[in-house]
Design a protein around this nucleic acid. Sequence first.
DNA 1: TTAGATTACGAGTGATTGCTCGTATTCCAC
DNA 2: GTGGAATACGAGCAATCACTCGTAATCTAA
Lengths: 205, 205
Amino acid sequence: MPEERPRRRQARGERRIAEILDAAAGVFAEAGFERATTNAIAAAAGISPGSLYQFFPNKAALAQALADRFVAEMAAAHRAAFDGTDFAALSVGEVADRVIDPILEFNLDNPGFKALFARPDMPSDLAAAAQPIQGALLGRVTAILAARVPGMPEPDRARSARVLIQIFQGMVPLVVSTPEPERPAVIAEVKRVLIGYLASIESLK
Amino acid sequence: MPEERPRRRQARGERRIAEILDAAAGVFAEAGFERATTNAIAAAAGISPGSLYQFFPNKAALAQALADRFVAEMAAAHRAAFDGTDFAALSVGEVADRVIDPILEFNLDNPGFKALFARPDMPSDLAAAAQPIQGALLGRVTAILAARVPGMPEPDRARSARVLIQIFQGMVPLVVSTPEPERPAVIAEVKRVLIGYLASIESLK
DNA sequence: TTAGATTACGAGTGATTGCTCGTATTCCAC
DNA sequence: GTGGAATACGAGCAATCACTCGTAATCTAA
């Protein structure tokens, strides 16, 4: 049975870990998770393969740590988008602006994010890492729906929240792949889609 | 310089090719493209690795052939969805039903499809194989928009067509992953989303 | 019938890649 | 200062996988 005493990191080590995660995000974004080699990540971080394995026991753990960091940053983006606002008092357009812009910006700033979380064969432990924010996001959208459409039956509300989230996440690739002069128009269309759906729900009384 | 004389296939060989493509679609769907090994595909087809390479020079060519078959079948699904209908004379609900159901059914029946075409690192030659149907789909949706909303400026029309397609394709994973008793309700929501967006475009006159 | 082509086999090969290990350097607590 | 821990190196190991090759069975055209 391995002792597995956690080593006491020096400041240098903490810095290295951050550098490795940065490098991994870049390589994942460029090559995709499978094609990304640990040696390439080490080279991108400016260290040797052996040094990389001083900090991460294997590639999966590296991916897990990067995922955890993404999740924490995404949670912050979600808090910025959702907290401290009375969504029942806003117009649908205002709701869309408040919620969509920061989350979209996060996706634009972190191309490695979807390389990790949108891959077809996501292992269960990575999905488990993403589950908290996914669940929290679902809860927040459901809460907005509950505040705005109180009469809606619970199953319908949960389903509509899932649909809203899926629309948004499904449109992210289109937004990201659209080059700059055209991008704001596409973002405006995304908002129109979500607003239209939200309005059609609210019009049911 | 290789002679590269195309060999004359026997009926048995044609059958084998179809069997290999079937097996590949299944293995791709289960394991994803990268994780799918050629030996596993051969085993699933009930043949040896060497026999597989009698028919396909490499894994990329196998993927290409499967993609071509999917594209042909998808094109047929598109024809069934679009041809012989005057979309200008239908209600938005009828348009949605006619277009969405057959294409959604194709995606449900062919789980290998998205394993090939939705992978993050799709090589350019695979994208080239998909381009004709993607282009044709874009043209068909644009034509429907042109028939229904004649006054719309061309750039807006093209953008809205792309958005409509992206909404649909972005929702496919949600539909596929929803188990059966619940699935029709999700499909109904997908249609409501598309109808809502279409109606909001048409309401602009 | 038979010669040549096609189909079939499966152990093996070369290349890739995640990861190790022996060793050297740097840091920090005492 | 000194000893132990943390950091760093990079050649190389073991496993995986796309693919090959020598050989044999089967089919088809004549």
